[in-house]
């Protein structure tokens, strides 16, 4: 056997090793979740994951008759980890945008809520490009809000955080003048909490489809179109038969499915 053949064999062996561990075994659906985005996903003190995204993931697995393996992943590595086959789909309030579609495929949306600015009550500046000039504006890194903030408020000093929780922490501490995020998450996760006293929404809903996309969906690798279609069908079924409403009402006072 020549040396080249040996190398080729070795490589082939390695490849099967990698793909062998990476591909789903058919019984399990490995779901990438974040766990730092209440009320959509958060982690209890004992390590269990909770939230709307988590409930949704478990319901989808149940309907697809698969075992759910929840894989926690930091937000800014979410898409790279999906592409590296650490899990098979992302269920983590990820907005469907053109930029992301270059890397991954999306199911139909499972909810759609607008983004909004949050600032101190009576902040003394408007939620516009002019008003935010020279102001410190916090956003979570690698989100649609980073995209919108850089596009809509070029004069603002944009401050990036790994998690949305850190954004609120620094807003409350007074290190930020404003922050941009999902309005519903901002209400449930901050404004309605103790830490969010004295803060309020600033300005109108953000109108920026290019950055914000058309709602949140599950992301899958581009080659997994069968999985994508199965997931889309399941989302629509959950919406149609009323299961959506009971999951929705467990967390929210309004229907978050959007138009």
């Amino acid at each position: 056997m020549t040396k080249n053949k040996l190398v080729a064999l070795g490589l082939a062996g390695l490849m099967t090793l990698f793909t062998g561990t990476a591909s789903a075994d058919g019984h399990a659906l490995r779901v990438g979740v974040e766990g730092a985005y209440p009320p959509f996903s958060w982690k209890e003190a004992d390590g269990t994951l909770k939230g709307f995204d988590i409930d949704f993931a478990l319901e989808v697995c149940k309907r697809l008759k698969k075992e759910c393996v929840l894989v926690e992943q930091e937000w800014d590595g979410m898409i790279p980890a999906l592409l590296a086959k650490k899990f098979d789909t992302i269920i983590a309030s990820m907005s469907i945008t053109e930029e992301r579609k270059k890397k991954v495929d999306f199911t139909v949306k499972y909810y759609n809520t607008p983004a909004k600015l949050v600032a101190k009550k009576g902040a003394g500046f408007a939620g516009t490009a002019d008003g935010l000039k020279g102001k410190r504006l916090g956003v979570q890194r690698a989100t649609t809000h980073q995209c919108s903030a850089e596009k809509l408020y070029p004069g603002a000093e944009i401050v990036l955080y790994a998690t949305q929780e850190e954004v609120f922490q620094d807003l409350a501490a007074g290190r930020l003048d404003a922050q941009l995020s999902d309005s519903l998450q901002a209400y449930e996760g901050f404004l309605s909490q103790d830490a969010g006293k004295g803060f309020d929404f600033l300005g109108q809903d953000i109108d920026d489809v290019e950055c914000q996309g058309v709602g949140a969906g599950f992301a899958v690798r581009k080659e997994d179109s069968a999985l994508r279609d199965a997931l889309s069908k399941t989302i629509l079924a959950i919406r149609a038969d009323g299961t959506y409403k009971s999951m929705n009402d467990k967390y929210f006072a309004v229907d978050i499915y959007g138009n």
């Binding site: 590595g77 790279p80 592409l83 590296a84 930029e99 890397k103 690698a142 989100t143 990036l160």
Partner: peptide, 14 residues
């Protein structure tokens, strides 16, 4: 920080 900004902005890994 800039590296993570670039990764975050364009959803890149490396």
């Amino acid at each position: 920080g800039v590296g993570r900004w670039l990764n975050g902005r364009y959803y890149l890994a490396y």
